[in-house]
Design a protein around this nucleic acid. Structure first.
Length: 887
RNA sequence: GCGGGCUUAGCUCAGUUGGUUAGAGCGUCUGCCUUACACGCAGAAUGUCGGGGGUUCGAGUCCCUCAGCCCGCACCA
């Protein structure tokens, strides 16, 4: 009770305190959990963003949700770890640096491998902190002392360890295979990194004459340029039209090469097209397999850069695929062998990274034999050790895992984990080991060279939950925080990342990497369109954080986060910035009224002596704590945020603060009551701020600190939990009646156009406890409904307007203002609706089946409702009856 | 082809194990500067819950079916 009352500035200006609080929290070490703590552990690892990237709204969403859960757990008594870090993102990062080099007219080959890699590291050191600063700006409570990078020495060691183990277990093999090749990235990519898109194209029919000139076969293709590499024509072995041709030779147009007609029941569907298929084993997956079956030659006519090779013929060599296509079609037409070129829709494979058309290419690559890894990973989800939320993703997960293909893990890049395979220069013996062997284990030669390929970035990401904790070493962190508790990430990387982490975790740590997976939706614009720079509908999280405050951005993302698509608009953020302002102003009001600090006043009131309004708000606050905790348990961020929003704004501000004003100002009640009201106001504000803190960390800390708390920071204060002893059904029931009466009177005033300053007289009829409670709170009715007096003596005049609220009959004396036609029509409409409902209720209650089968409480509810309708109809009819004829 | 999802107020979405009276935010309309807040207060309007059928005493909720939209996987001569 000093005279230095805490104060908040009159305006909410998040820029004044958000960054200040982040720095203070970090400096105080609040983000850094203690692995040796005896508290229960909660841990979550960040989905590592690309180290060269900038934070986009999708990152903001995921990390906000992670931070909400982490802060909530931390306040709920857990030793909580939010482990941050970044991903080296092989292709993307290499591309960025190559683009930089290109500006100087250089390619990576001009620098050489070592110098180029050094250049990328330099780039990483110069630009890799951007994401970090952006996460800080959003308030993410990451433990920066544990920050990791997928190319750190520790994580690289984990990658090599895993590679060696898988190799030794026979789960990694190197083989010649048809892979997806990106001519632009100049590397193989995995099936997942290929995106298919429907394109309007053509299907060309080409005539292939038999070598003996006796006849010809017509084949169809969507890629005429590949005909230069055809090594056979296939027909179905049972096809009566063609079976006699099997074994004969065809003269391949434009090249003059003779190729055989083969029978292949797998490749050819006799119903499709002409029933004859050209076979290009070097450039088509199915043709490659058919080539193996039929022992066909393979002629590579397209090279690693997507250019036609010498084998395609001098006329076509060095043309691009597109140029070759045009020329082949023209040349065929010129010699009269092009039958037709019909418009055709087909799905084209693009590189997910650079959108170049992928070229199927045969090359020697490293693969992971995935089925043995997938099986236990399927089990872990099937038996519930890992839960996926929303659960509708289960079947997608199973569907993919059960039909999984071997994973191509080698990339022809320079930036990444170089594959720890070593080849003897003399005997070609291949050794896979953590470190470079000094000599060949077979022939003793010291001429050893390491594999030049690097690993798919996702190979290292798959280890992230344990490699970041120090695995394969038995570290304190690994013991304390692994398995992690929760994984939150976008559903788009369920296969890329989540599934692979589960497989890797089970295989190498023998444990699930996390027990809960929450898959969040994808942020779209307000019309559901994907955000993209070209469309110009991108919302930059940093920009909006500056405009509305990081708290508003976080709250908006949380409250919109349900669903697969998250339609985001700046106007929504503006709306929740208004909520922050509301919070600020409510706190200002409280501070103008309270007389003690939070530290002094906690539980400084005797609950038994509290008035009904105080009991009510404490009960509501308690129910909100229950709802918020329950929603967060279920990852229903939208429900949780909404529960706080509704409680804070509607119940706390619109009702409780208004209802407490008469007592707080001293107009009503005793000094003791005033004292208690102040204590309750402070208590409820404190609890509300704590509930809100995970969503809006900055504003809650700024306000809370001004309240003179006992704890050093709200982020380490206890999160409110439901306390059954604070549930007060009776207070809630009574206050609901009070609210109902106030609302009814306000309604009538508005619909009758009663001027705001005119005070009206209200008559109430209630029994026993209700009457006592209403008499005790009559001052509230007077205040909030602008009444001159509230009477309980049954002296309401005939002309008064009647209504029933929660069993309490009310009669309002209205001035002689004609009921408007609108108001009358409204009442008539309501009567009509009630009559309809009454008929329904009566029909139901007189239905024997309903009475026999429905549960008792439903029947009781129906009876109560029927009575309510009857009462209400009576009052409504009375109100519209001409004066004097009413009963 | 296989698998999954969506269709609820003008817009964007909630709606737990079926319980009859379908909610929120934003927007719209009306009246208010009431001593925390006009980024505010009070009040109001709006839904054949995509169409049809079924199960049930009772369906937005379960089943079937039709239509439209979306996503993933596979295939595409």
């Amino acid at each position: 009770m000093d005279n230095t009352k805490p104060e908040l500035s009159t305006r909410y200006s998040p820029a004044e305190f958000e960054q200040r609080w982040y720095a203070a929290w970090e400096a105080a070490g609040y983000f850094t959990p203690d692995a040796s703590s005896t508290k229960p552990k909660f841990s979550i690892v960040i989905p590592p963003p690309n180290v060269t990237g900038r934070l986009h709204i999708g990152h903001a969403l995921v990390n906000t949700l992670i931070d909400i859960i982490t802060r909530w757990k931390r306040m709920s008594g857990f030793e909580a770890l939010f482990l941050p870090g970044t991903d080296h993102a092989g292709i993307a990062t290499q591309m960025v640096v190559e683009r930089e080099l290109a500006k100087q007219g250089l390619s990576r080959h001009d620098l050489g491998r070592d110098a180029f890699v050094e250049k990328v590291w330099q780039w990483k050191n110069d630009h890799g902190n951007q994401i970090k600063d952006q996460l800080k700006r959003l308030g993410c409570s990451c433990d920066w002392t544990r920050e990791r990078f997928t190319l750190d020495e520790g994580l690289s060691h984990a990658v090599r360890t895993v590679f060696v183990k898988l190799y030794e277990d026979g789960l990694i093999y190197r083989d010649l295979a048809m892979v997806n090749w990106c001519p632009r990235c100049h590397t193989a990519i995995s099936d997942l990194e290929v995106e298919f898109e429907e394109r309007d194209s053509r299907i060309w029919s080409i005539e292939y004459p038999l070598a003996d000139g006796s006849a010809s076969l017509t084949v169809a293709t969507t890629r005429p340029e590949t005909m230069l590499g055809d090594t056979a024509v296939a027909v179905h072995p049972d096809d009566e039209r063609y079976k006699h041709l099997i074994g004969k030779m065809v003269k391949l147009p434009l090249t003059g090469r003779e190729i055989p007609v083969v029978g292949d029941a797998i490749l050819v569907d006799p119903e499709f097209g002409t029933g004859a298929v050209k076979v290009t084993p070097a450039h088509d997956k199915n043709d490659y397999e058919a080539g193996q079956r039929n022992k066909l030659a393979s002629i590579q006519v397209i090279n690693e850069l997507g250019l036609m090779t010498a084998a395609a013929g001098e006329a076509y060599a060095r043309l691009t695929r597109e140029e070759a296509r045009t020329k082949v079609v023209a040349d065929l037409e010129a010699i009269g062998l092009l039958r037709d070129a019909k418009p055709y829709k087909n799905s084209v494979a693009f590189c997910a990274r650079c959108s170049t058309i992928v070229e199927p290419m045969v090359s020697r690559q490293w693969f992971v034999k995935i089925e043995p890894l997938a099986k236990p990973a399927i089990e872990a989800v099937r038996d519930g050790r890992i839960t996926i939320t929303p659960s509708s993703w289960d079947s997608t997960y199973f569907n993919w895992m059960e039909n999984i293909h071997d994973w191509c893990i080698s990339r022809q890049l320079w930036w990444g984990h170089r594959i720890p395979a070593f080849t003897c220069g003399d005997c070609q013996h291949v050794m896979v080991a953590l470190d470079s062997p000094a000599s060949c284990s077979k022939c003793g030669s010291t001429s050893i060279s390491q594999e030049t390929d690097v690993l798919d970035t996702w190979f290292s990401s798959a280890l992230w939950p344990f490699s970041t904790m120090g695995w394969p070493n038995e570290t304190d962190d690994l013991r304390a925080f692994y398995p992690t508790t929760t994984m939150i990430t976008g559903f788009d990387i369920l296969f890329f990342w989540v599934a692979r982490m589960i497989m890797a975790g089970l295989r190498f740590t023998g444990e699930i990497p996390f027990s809960q997976v929450f898959l969040n939706g994808l942020v779209r614009d307000e019309h559901g369109q994907k955000m993209s720079k070209t469309k110009g509908n991108v919302i930059d999280p940093l920009e909006v954080a500056d405009e509305f405050g990081a708290d508003a951005v976080r709250f908006t993302l949380a409250i919109l986060s349900s669903g697969r698509d998250i339609p985001l608009a700046k106007s929504r953020m503006q709306g929740y910035a208004a909520f922050a302002t509301k919070t600020w102003n409510a706190a200002r009001f409280a501070m103008m009224n309270v007389e003690s600090t939070l530290a002094e006043s906690t539980s400084a009131f005797d609950h038994a002596k509290l008035g009904i309004v105080e009991r009510w708000i404490l009960s509501r606050c308690n129910a909100t704590a229950r709802d918020v905790n329950r929603s967060l348990e279920a990852f229903r961020f939208d429900e949780a945020a909404n529960a706080i929003y509704q409680f804070f704004w509607k119940e706390l501000c619109d009702w409780y603060i208004e209802m407490s004003k008469p007592v707080l100002s001293g107009r009503e009640g005793t000094p003791e009551e005033q004292h208690r009201a102040k204590a309750v106001l402070l208590t409820v504000l404190d609890r509300a701020l704590r509930l809100l803190h995970p969503f809006m960390p900055f504003i809650t800390e700024e306000i809370w600190q001004k309240l003179g708390p006992a704890d050093p920071s709200i982020m380490t204060a206890a999160y409110p939990k439901h306390d059954a002893s604070l549930d007060d059904a009776e207070a809630e029931r009574v206050v609901e009646i009070v609210q109902g009466i106030v609302t009814t009177v306000r309604n009538l005033r508005a619909s009758r156009g009663v001027p705001g300053k005119e005070r009206l007289r209200l008559h109430l009829r209630a029994d026993g406890a209700d009457r006592a409670a209403l008499e005790a709170t009559a001052y509230l009715l007077r205040d909030m409904a602008k009444l001159s007096e509230v009477r309980f003596d049954g002296t309401a005049p005939e002309s008064a307007h009647r209504d029933v609220v929660g069993g309490v009959e009310l009669a309002l004396e209205l001035p002689k203002i004609e009921i408007s036609a609108d108001a009358l029509a409204k009442i008539a409409k309501e009567i009509e609706a009630l009559e309809k409902e009454l008929a329904g209720a009566e029909g139901r209650l007189s239905n024997r089946q309903f009475v026999e089968k429905a549960p008792p409480q439903i029947i009781a509810g129906a009876r109560a409702r029927r009575q309510e309708i009857i009462d209400r109809l009576a009052t409504l009819r009375q109100n519209v009856a001409p004066a004097g004829t009413g009963e």
